[in-house]
Design a binder for these strands. Structure first.
Lengths: 340, 340
DNA sequence: CCCTGTTGAGTAAACGATTACTCATCTTGC
DNA sequence: GCAAGATGAGTAATCGTTTACTCAACAGGG
């Protein structure tokens, strides 16, 4: 048990070969005899050699670390993506630095500066605000969910998202098919492409079913939280209500369900609900929630692979990947018509 | 817009002072005149200088990064602690590398090797298994929730946990007070101090109320998941059932509620439930769940501060901190006796 | 006027690993 | 037997910062 980790130089002394050779053995790079290899490897193990990533990174200018920028890690949907991302990257022996921005531009900026200082080889932007995009200009990047608004075509990035427009449409069709006519949408903010697309898809499907613009009420909420959903539902209910509600995030729908239940409104009898993301709280919540499902595993896997491709200098097959979504139908819209 | 970040040497060239002076200005270390300072700072800003942390870390052998080892980031309780941890550390300009172990010893080991390679200045162990503890032997460490089994008193660590024993006792008292007599406990694994303490506290309180050992059935479950809770509840219900169930994690209780509801068992009428951690799913679940609350914010804050103290070489005030818990009483035990 | 202390700033040696060169030795074909 | 390629391994420069030494210039006390 050596107290601290030994360096390549000490291994060199011990084995009697030069540091260059030790380095070659470690990286399996260049030529060396079988015996040398064996001797060095034995010493490496015996003395519990741990490579100094700072030194390596300094010399090679590339470090097997990527930054993951996420707005809120306690959001189950983001946490799942992050998890799968990390698994995949770790399998490729990359480590990840996860940064929580809380949607604050200044925090994001500081995180980004830190990541640049660390010389990370790429950045993964989960649902990122476009604010600090110029900061990472030339760095390999993959955006998940939200499309960055960019000034110039810097190009070194990819976008992966699921079909939000379709998701919104599916939600609308489900509510319409179950007989709803007075629709309402709770949308998170008005400047996020993801949530805007969900609303647009919803509207379009409502249109196609013959509803007019006035029949769809849209409420913009400033946060994805159960409290917001609860609060808004009470307000809207006072002001006339709805018979079908689509929330662009599950937490809002959970809050809505709570508010409705408390006011004695039956679900799905008097009002039907559809959420988005199909999180655990949707599946096992007060009212099992019909929700639009997107595979966090696939998103994570794809995003990781794409980022690594960009880092390796290969052009990713596609700059923009859109994944399918499907609707999980549950009690909140009255149906056990789950189609797996 | 320079394409890549400039180095200290280039700033030196630009300003006409030596690299040493530039470094001094950057670190506000050593002597330099006001004018020099101004000139250098201007250049730093103008050329968008970003320190190379690899080089700095190599030279100083300390890097402002700590590793956070967590079993499952999608678990809301862990995610919350991680979040608060990160906020606090970030405020002290430390960055964090979050590692998800999935409770697997080998993954944990690899993560730990990586953290050592990164020369992190400390490690935060959220609910960590003790497996790889020898690996970090001399590294500053803080353990949250679970006590590491250690061979020798290496001493360079602290433990922060909440009062699990009391939490278990509170759960028992609530169930007993509401009239339950046939108790059951779903405990996560049998080798985790946290969950063992919760059970022990529960048992002790039951004892004090006059119940005998036979009156408390204990089921050990291999995972904290809704599915496990659901499955076990069906089994136990076949085998005689209970009128009061305590789950050492909320997800289990949510699954139990689902199973009971499906079998037509009324909650809290025929069976009462108590969970642990007071997660969102407990508050807004199918049956609002009575649950033992522990402040993730306080845990995170305290853990971060303690770790930084150890890193700075100060002995933390206390090696072992136990935080209070309290019971949130909700519908699953039939009571709106919430006492804030 | 000299001695001493302070101030501002430069020189150069690390830190640990990688890698372009170089070179001695060994193979092998003719 | 020898030119030429293959093989194994060493030398030393380099990555960007920090920091222990120096040292010149200057101020002030005696």
């Amino acid at each position: 048990m050596k107290p601290d980790s030994v360096s390549i130089r000490e291994i060199s002394k011990i084995t009697g070969v030069s540091v260059a050779t030790v380095s070659r053995v470690i990286n399996n790079n260049g030529r060396f005899s079988k015996e040398t290899e064996a001797r060095v490897k034995k010493a490496l193990k015996e003395y519990n050699y741990t490579p100094n990533l700072a030194a390596r990174g300094l010399r090679t200018k590339r470090i097997a670390t990527v930054g993951v920028v996420v707005p809120d890690i306690t959001n189950e949907y983001f946490a799942r993506i992050t998890l799968h991302l990390q698994e995949r990257l770790f399998a490729r022996s990359y480590s990840t630095i996860i940064c929580n921005t809380d949607e604050k531009a200044d925090i994001e900026r500081r995180h980004l500066d830190m990541l640049l200082s660390q010389q990370v080889s790429g950045v993964m932007y989960i649902s990122g605000t476009p604010h600090a995009f110029d900061r990472l200009s030339h760095l390999p990047a993959v955006f998940i969910d939200r499309e960055p608004k960019m000034e110039q075509e810097t190009g070194n990035y990819s976008l992966i998202e699921s079909d939000n427009y379709l998701g919104g449409a599916l939600a609308a069709r489900e509510l319409l098919q179950k007989g709803c006519r007075r629709l309402c949408v709770f949308k998170y903010r008005d400047d996020i492409s993801t949530h805007n697309a969900r609303e647009a898809g919803f509207r379009q499907a409502a249109h196609e079913a013959g509803l007019r613009d006035g029949d769809v009420r849209v409420e913009i909420v400033p946060a994805v939280s159960v409290e917001q959903g609860y609060q808004r539902t009470r307000e809207v209910w006072q002001a006339g209500g709805f018979d079908g509600l689509f929330c662009t995030a599950d937490a809002l729908a959970v809050g809505a369900a709570g508010a409705l239940r408390q006011q004695g409104v039956s679900i799905p009898g008097q009002a039907k609900l559809v959420g988005y993301d199909d999180t655990a709280i949707a599946r096992y919540g007060a009212v099992p929630l019909t929700s639009v499902h997107q595979s966090t595993e696939e998103i994570g896997r794809l995003a990781a692979d794409t980022l690594l491709q960009i880092i390796d200098g290969k052009q990713p097959e596609q700059r923009h990947i859109t994944l399918p979504v499907h609707l999980m139908v549950r009690e909140s819209t009255g149906g056990h018509t789950e189609e797996a």
